[in-house]
Simulated assay, not measured.
Amino acid sequence: MYYPFLRGKQEELLAIKELLLAGKLGDRVTPVIELVKLSSTLVSTLAEFVKAERNIYLVMNPIVGEFENNMSETLLGNEDEDEVRRIKRLNLIKEKFNVLLTSEFVKIALYYCNDFNGYFNNSKLKSENEIAILLKDAGENMAFMQSSFIENNRIKLCFTTEIEDVINFTGRAVLWRDRFNKRERNSDYPEDEFFSKDHSIYSTQGCVGFSDYSIVDSEYVDNGFSPYAIAIHMVYEGNENKHLRIRHFISDTNNSPKNPSQKYKEATKKLVAWCEPNISLKTLGYSKIKDTHDKEAYPGLGSVKRFSIMHHLEITGEVLGTL
């Protein structure tokens, strides 16, 4: 089972929603979403998963973003008209979110920090909720193993970054690692490199699943910036041992951040030339990139990230189906 760990930003949510609606999200793929913002896109995405009777995990005690502030925001009586409208709209979204939270298909994930005890015992979480525990480092693994929670039968999954600790969570361990090798500059990416073999080894290591951050690294960045170079990252299955590799398609005119449309055209020209001969690479995410290329349209960097995530999740789901 693959549990891609994504932040609940607009493009990440749209990626899994569009795959689900198109029937391209493999049965062995269950997203884990760290809630960084309360939004209508979050609500609509959850609604589609519930409608499709597909499981999705939500990190209810996020350590990044503004979700908790959104959930606690109320009218105080001294707001101007625009602020009143914004908070009322937010409260409507909150009501819909709380209803979806009661669905059997919306599962709960919790970091073993950030008031874990309070969230674990929160009355809003049904007693039968399956809980996934997120253990970020060896210290948290040790603390969790020494706690009374380890024997709690509500805890179904233990996400661990330390393969040495997998044995402590037999039957529940999910190997959770950042597989994207982020460079300081987009122009620094090599043409091609190894990405991951976790999908082919997780079960031999005693795990019930594996997790990564897709083609986004584990560092959380709220606002982007205009890069000098545009890089599009495409995961594919290598010829040897079913390992996943990643190809980086980089623009050529990288002396300034000006003209991102031209940079995108340069990168997609390389991408389409490489992908077109290989039918196994023609995913929904790829088709969206090719469509913008054919129309000579620049969709913006957010959409480019969404399409690349979609491609990765679809490719991984297809590879798992052949193992």
Rank of each mutant, 00 (worst) to 15 (best):
D188S: 11
N239S: 10
E95H: 02
D222A: 15
E73L: 15
R177Q: 14
N78Y: 12
P299V: 02
S280P: 02
L134Q: 01
G171P: 05
I250C: 02
V106K: 01
V84P: 02
L135N: 00
D165K: 09
L90W: 08
N239E: 12
N91P: 02
L90H: 07
L125A: 01
F105I: 00
L13S: 01
T30H: 07
G139P: 00
K295V: 03
V221L: 14
F67T: 05
I16F: 07
M145L: 13
H199W: 15
F67A: 07
R179E: 13
W274I: 10
M71Q: 06
D178H: 08
I279N: 14
F49W: 07
I108N: 08
E164F: 11
F249G: 00
M1Q: 10
L134F: 06
P4S: 03
F169W: 09
M60F: 11
I33N: 02
V36R: 04
S187M: 15
L101P: 04
K197R: 14
H311E: 00
N91C: 07
E81I: 14
R7M: 10
R245T: 00
C158E: 04
A132P: 03
N152E: 03
L323V: 00
K288A: 06
G238P: 01
L58Q: 05
L13Q: 05
S280R: 11
S147N: 04
I232Q: 03
R247D: 03
I131Y: 10
D82R: 13
G321L: 09
P299K: 01
N255C: 05
L110K: 02
D252Q: 08
Y286T: 00
N181S: 13
N114S: 11
Q146K: 14
Y3K: 02
N91M: 15
I232S: 06
C207S: 08
A229T: 06
D217N: 15
K242F: 14
P277L: 10
E130G: 13
F105M: 05
R172I: 01
V29F: 03
R86W: 08
T283R: 08
I87K: 08
V272G: 07
T204S: 15
I167C: 12
S103G: 03
L13T: 02
N129T: 00
L281A: 04
D115Y: 13
K37Q: 12
N98M: 14
K295W: 04
I87Y: 09
M60P: 01
N121H: 13
F194S: 07
H233F: 07
A273S: 11
A173Q: 02
H243E: 12
R54Q: 00
M71F: 11
V319L: 09
Y189D: 09
K295G: 02
V84Y: 07
T161Y: 09
K136I: 13
F97D: 04
R306F: 03
P277T: 10
C113Q: 13
I133P: 01
R54N: 01
H312G: 04
R85A: 15
T292H: 12
V319F: 03
N129A: 09
I315A: 03
T161S: 15
S211T: 05
N91R: 14
V99N: 10
A231N: 10
L175T: 05
Y57D: 04
L244F: 15
L20D: 07
Y264V: 02
L19S: 03
Y3H: 11
S226L: 14
E193H: 10
E151Q: 12
G209Q: 11
E66N: 14
E191T: 10
E68L: 15
G77V: 10
E104A: 14
V29I: 09
L46S: 01
K107T: 07
S72T: 06
